[in-house]
Design a protein around this nucleic acid. Structure first.
Lengths: 258, 258
DNA sequence: CGACCTTTTGATTGGCGTCAAAATCTGTGG
DNA sequence: CCACAGATTTTGACGCCAATCAAAAGGTCG
C-alpha cells in the first residue's frame, strides 16, 4: 500500500514535456485559439510526487483535477477486507480525478508508481470551464470513452481470461501505450520500454497474486516471449504474446487519444 | 449466446414511458428549451426486440446510437475462445452504443434480456448534435462517468472479490437500479423486482460459472437473504447481503443519473 | 404435448491462493 | 563506495475455491 512519501507544490506550471504537447494538440485541436488561451488561466498548481505517493484517497472529495505530465500513476479501489484492485494506469497526458460522482465522494484512490509531475485544476472551476469551452467537453468525453473501453477489457481479463491471457494482455497494452506516450523511454533496438510496475501491482491489476504473476512472467521469459528485469520490459515475440493474450493492437491505435 | 429472434422497426418514436420522462428531465434539465425541441428532430426510428435478440455485434460499426425505453439489455464481449463477459446491464433510460472508438469498430455486442423497445439516433448526426447542444454533451459525459464507475466496481468484483461477495453485490446493484428505473415492476410489500437474468448471465457478469452461481443463490435463499424464482428477485435481508457484498447504496443514490 | 432452456445436485479435477523462506535488488546514510 | 534495511523476486509444498463433467428435474413456450 502506498504511503505518503513526498509531495511538493509550486504555483506556476512547468513547461510541458514533448509528449504532453503532442497530446494537448490532440485535445485542443478543435478548440478555437482564444478559447485555448483562456483555458490556460485555469492552471494553477504544479505537483511533484516521489514514487508510491498517494495523490488522493477514496472517500474524500478532492479539490482538484489533474493532468499528468511525467511519470506513471495508478488508480485503485480496495475492498473492506483490504484487497486492492488497480482499475487504471495513467501515463503522461492523462487526466486524473475526473470521475465525478455527482456531489458524492470519489470512489478510488490514486498514487504514483514513479516520480511524477502533475498540474492541478481547481475542481470548483470545472463547471465554468465546460460552459465556456464546449469543444473541450466533447474531447474530455471521448477520453472518458477511452477509459471505459480499457476498463471493459480489464473486466474481461479478470472475469473470463486465465492468468496467462490476462498478464500477456496487460503487458502488451502497457507496452504500446508507454511506447506512444513516453517515446523517450522506448528503445527501438531492443524493443523495450521503461517499466516501473512491481509484480504485485501487475497482480492487483489483473486479479491474481504476486506469486502467481511471478510464475507466469518467468514462464514467458523462459519461452523467449519477453524479458522483464530492472524496471525494463522487452517484448521478444509479440506475435505469440498477442495470441496468448488475445490482444488486438487496434485497441490502442484506433483511438487517437490513447 | 443470443440469436436474432425478432427486430421490428417503426419510423416514428413511441410516447415515452414514465421513467424515461423522469430521466430525460434529468438529462435535459440544463439544456435550453429551444435546443431541446431541436434535439427531438434527431429521433428517427423506434425498435422493438424480443428477448435474447442481438442489437449489434462486436467488430461492426453500428449506424445508430440507442436510447432504451423499455426492458433490460446487456452488453458483452467475447474472448477468441468463446467465453463471454457481460460488461454492462442497461435499464430504461440508458444510452447504448455510445462508446465510439475513434473511427474504429465497436468492441462489444448488445442483446436484449427481455422484450425491449428503443429509439435509434443516426450516428452520422451525433457530431452535429454535440456541436449544436453543448450542454447535452456535458450531460452525456456525466452518464459516461457513471458507466465507468459501475464498470470499475465490476472489475473489483471479478478481480478481487470471491464469488459470494460478487453475486451479493450484483444482486443489490441491479435491485436498486431496477427499483429506481422500473418502479412499476417494484413490489413494495414484498421488496421484490421483476428480474429477468438467468443464472448463466449472472455468472457471465461476475466471472463465475452458472453452476457455481446456482450454489451461491441457493445458499443465499437457504439463509433467508433473498428469494429468487420465476423471474422475480426479493431482497429479504438487505443488511446482511450488503455486508457480504461490500455494497454501499451510495453508488446508486449519489449519482443523479443512475 | 414436446422440444428446449434453465435450474439443481453430486463427483471429481485443477488453477491459483496461501504460507514460508531464501535470494536478489534498491535506495539511503555513513 | 560500502553496508545495511527494506522491498521485491523467486521457488517449493500444500490446500481450497471454483471449474468441469454429467445427469436429472423443473419451467416455458410454441
Amino acid at each position: 500500500m502506498p504511503k505518503n512519501n513526498h509531495i511538493s507544490i509550486k504555483t506556476e506550471c512547468l513547461p510541458q514535456c514533448a509528449s504532453c504537447r503532442v497530446r494537448e494538440r490532440a485535445l485542443y485541436k478543435q478548440v478555437p485559439k482564444d478559447s485555448l488561451a483562456n483555458s490556460q488561466q485555469y492552471r494553477k498548481y504544479q505537483l511533484s510526487l516521489t514514487p508510491k505517493t498517494t495523490l488522493y484517497s477514496a472517500g474524500t472529495r478532492p479539490e482538484f483535477l489533474y493532468t499528468l505530465y511525467e511519470g506513471w500513476m495508478a488508480l485503485y479501489q480496495s475492498t473492506s477486507s483490504g484487497k486492492r484492485q488497480i482499475i487504471c494506469f495513467s501515463l503522461p497526458g492523462d487526466f486524473i480525478g475526473f470521475q465525478a460522482n455527482g456531489n458524492g465522494n470519489i470512489m478510488h484512490s490514486a498514487f504514483s508508481l514513479t516520480n511524477a509531475t502533475l498540474c492541478a485544476f481547481p475542481r470548483s472551476r470545472i463547471k465554468q470551464m465546460f460552459e465556456e469551452q464546449p469543444m473541450l467537453t466533447t474531447q474530455l468525453s471521448l477520453m472518458g470513452s477511452r477509459d471505459l473501453t480499457l476498463c471493459q477489457h480489464h473486466l474481461m481479463s479478470a472475469g473470463r481470461k486465465d492468468s496467462h491471457e490476462s498478464v500477456a494482455f496487460l503487458l502488451l497494452e502497457l507496452f504500446h501505450r508507454a511506447k506512444k506516450r513516453i517515446p523517450q523511454d522506448f528503445n527501438e533496438a531492443e524493443n523495450s520500454i521503461a517499466f516501473p510496475l512491481t509484480q504485485e501491482e501487475i497482480g492487483d491489476a489483473v486479479g491474481i497474486t504476486n506469486v502467481h504473476v511471478n510464475r507466469i512472467v518467468r514462464e514467458f521469459m523462459r519461452d523467449g516471449l519477453i524479458h522483464c528485469q530492472h524496471r525494463k520490459l522487452t517484448i521478444r515475440n509479440e506475435e505469440k504474446l498477442s495470441e496468448i493474450g488475445d490482444f488486438d493492437i487496434g485497441i490502442i491505435s484506433s483511438n487517437f487519444l490513447i
